[in-house]
Amino acid sequence: MSEDEFEVVYSYTRKQAIEDGVLVDVTEQAQETGFKVPVAITANLYHRYIEPPDGLEGEGQSTTGRLHDVLLLTFLAAKDRWDGSMVEIEPLFVMGEGPRFEKVKCWAVIGPGDSGEPVLTIMLPEDY
């Protein structure tokens, strides 16, 4: 039986993942940073770390600023040590008063989009 003879039982596209909220499309902000491919962040990473914890939004922390920091770190790391498929970054997030910081391991992985085009996804290791 050849590869062409297999029937696809189910597929879940990147577009569907963005529509469902599993991925957050940040392509517009990523282009401002210098990315030339579509970029998404997993909802897990976005809601746990990109969105500031309660009480910090007005204390110099914003979703826009935190997203910019992650995109910039990813862009610089990719230029410096890209292995062809992924790069690891470890942004430091303010997570509470004092301030309390948390270093978070993230992966930026490039792969095929819904039409085979290159797309980048930034995620926590457990999201892979």
Rank of each mutant, 00 (worst) to 15 (best):
Y12M: 12
E5T: 05
D25P: 12
I18G: 07
V24K: 04
T33P: 08
T33C: 03
V37D: 06
R14Q: 11
L23Q: 02
A17L: 00
K36C: 09
Q31V: 15
V26S: 00
D25H: 03
I41E: 06
V37T: 03
T33N: 07
V22L: 09
V22F: 10
V24L: 12
G34I: 11
Y12T: 04
A30Q: 00
A30R: 08
K36N: 05
E28Q: 08
P38A: 04
A30I: 03
Q31G: 02
V22R: 00
L23N: 11
F35M: 08
D20V: 05
Q29W: 05
K36R: 15
T27V: 09
K15D: 03
S11Y: 14
K36H: 09
Y10T: 00
D25Q: 06
V24Y: 00
T13V: 00
I18H: 01
Y10S: 01
A30E: 06
K36Q: 11
Y12Q: 13
P38V: 08
V26A: 07
V24F: 01
K36T: 14
T13S: 14
L23D: 08
E28Y: 00
F6E: 15
V22I: 11
P38D: 07
E5D: 15
E28L: 13
L23G: 02
A17P: 07
T42N: 01
V39A: 02
Q31R: 13
V26H: 04
G21L: 03
A40T: 14
G34A: 03
E19W: 07
A40R: 01
G34W: 08
K36D: 06
E32H: 12
V9W: 04
F6P: 02
S11H: 14
K15S: 08
R14I: 11
T33V: 15
D25R: 11
I18F: 03
T27E: 11
I18E: 04
V39M: 12
A30N: 07
Y12V: 03
D25W: 05
T33M: 09
T33I: 15
S11Q: 15
E7L: 12
E19Q: 14
V39I: 05
Q31I: 15
P38S: 01
V9L: 11
G34P: 06
A40E: 00
Y10A: 03
V24D: 08
K36G: 03
V39P: 02
D25G: 03
E32L: 15
Q31H: 10
V37L: 02
V26T: 04
V39D: 04
Y12A: 06
G34S: 04
I41G: 11
R14Y: 04
L23E: 10
K15P: 07
D20N: 14
S11N: 13
I41R: 01
V37E: 00
A40I: 02
F35C: 05
A30W: 03
V8G: 00
R14C: 09
T42M: 01
E7I: 08
T27H: 10
F35Y: 04
V8S: 09
A40K: 06
I18A: 05
Q31L: 14
S11R: 15
V24H: 07
E7V: 13
T27K: 08
V24E: 07
I41F: 01
Y10I: 10
G21I: 02
T13F: 10
F6S: 13
I18P: 07
A30C: 07
T42P: 06
T27A: 09
A30G: 02
E32G: 09
E28F: 12
F6A: 14
